[in-house]
Amino acid sequence: MTTVTETGAIRDALGLLKDREQVAERLLEASAKHSFDPDTELDWDAPLEDGKWFWPPELVSLYDTPLWRRMPEEQRMELARHEAASLASLGIWFEVILMQLLVRHIYDKPLTSAHVRYALTEIADECRHSKMFARMITKGGAPAYPVSRLHHNLGRLLKTVSTTPGSFAATLLGEEILDWMQRLTFPDERVQPLVRGVTRIHVVEEARHVRYAREELRRQMATCPRWEAGLTRLSCGEAARVFSFAFVNPQVYTNVGLDRNEAVAQARASDHRREVMRTGAKRLTDFLDETGVLRGVGRRLWVSSGLLAP
């Protein structure tokens, strides 16, 4: 015989499933109206414009440090160009991980559901984004900056052991901070038109990805067992720590003629840089706090990452 408690749990579960489908249907409609093919949407043959930045100077890691104040304008712009390539390289790495996590998420889901159809739509988006970032790196003339071997292998571990809610928390980590920066970039007329075009496309399409991940993370954290919630908090905190350290590859400093150790030290000590990163992460950390992800050891890892104030 079904108890009152069990009936309520079944009703809640059905409500969550219905909500999941409604969200996916709306996202599919938005995707049909506002999706882009970067290969045809952007003018890849147009020459780069002299005197334009590849990234807003206020978002460059050394902005307003003693080292920055000593650098000539040309070197500052060169650093911005290399940091844009570093961020695009990081974006490709993260999106490859996210695509694998999404494929794993839908493996046991009803294959004709709107939820699965939207996940496949998002994977297609991420494929285009990764190709777009790679093409932007090539066009900009800076090298690609792969993450360190340690972080590469930690990413491999995350893909293997991540819980379902942990996968969506990692998705948001990889999307929301860069999204905040890109929202400042695409309307900035100081920035190269191509970079502005790339960030505009990414912002429009990532808004849907963020909604999908937020809704699923909220749903998962409300229903998952205690052990899974605990592992999610731990993996999310470690992912935040890795992400913050990998955000700018230190090789960029060497490649623009700076002392690498001095540049790394000044970037880490910079109040401006700390404020930029925490501001970029605030919308995300507020949401993770609300959904119960920022607790215990996981919260301490977020603080150690510099993305969350003590």
Rank of each mutant, 00 (worst) to 15 (best):
S130W: 03
E122F: 02
R128F: 12
V116S: 04
A134C: 04
E122A: 10
I123C: 07
K131H: 15
K109W: 08
S130D: 02
Y107E: 13
L120F: 11
P110R: 00
S113M: 05
I123P: 04
A114W: 03
C127K: 05
F133T: 03
E122W: 06
Y118T: 00
L120Y: 07
V116Q: 00
R128P: 02
H129Q: 05
R128Q: 12
T112A: 09
R135F: 06
C127A: 12
K109R: 09
I106L: 13
E126F: 00
E126Y: 00
A114C: 06
I106E: 10
L120S: 13
R128V: 06
A124D: 15
T121I: 07
T121V: 10
A134M: 11
D125A: 07
H115G: 08
K131Q: 15
Y118Q: 03
S130G: 06
F133Y: 12
H115T: 12
R135A: 11
H115S: 12
F133I: 08
M132G: 02
I123E: 03
H129M: 05
Y118W: 04
D108C: 08
P110G: 01
S113P: 01
K109N: 00
K131Y: 15
Y118M: 01
V116K: 05
F133D: 02
L120A: 13
L120V: 12
A114I: 01
R117D: 07
K131N: 15
D108F: 14
A114D: 07
R135D: 12
A134W: 07
I106P: 02
P110I: 03
L111N: 06
L111H: 09
T112G: 00
S113Y: 03
S113H: 01
K109D: 12
Y107D: 13
M132E: 03
M132C: 04
V116R: 06
A119K: 10
D125Q: 12
R117K: 11
F133Q: 07
R135P: 02
D125H: 09
A119C: 12
I123V: 13
A124V: 14
I123G: 04
S130A: 11
K131F: 15
R117A: 05
I106G: 06
R117T: 05
L111M: 11
L120T: 12
R135S: 11
R135W: 10
H129Y: 06
M132L: 04
A114T: 01
I106K: 07
S130I: 06
P110V: 02
F133K: 04
M132R: 03
K131R: 15
C127L: 11
I123F: 08
H115M: 08
H129V: 08
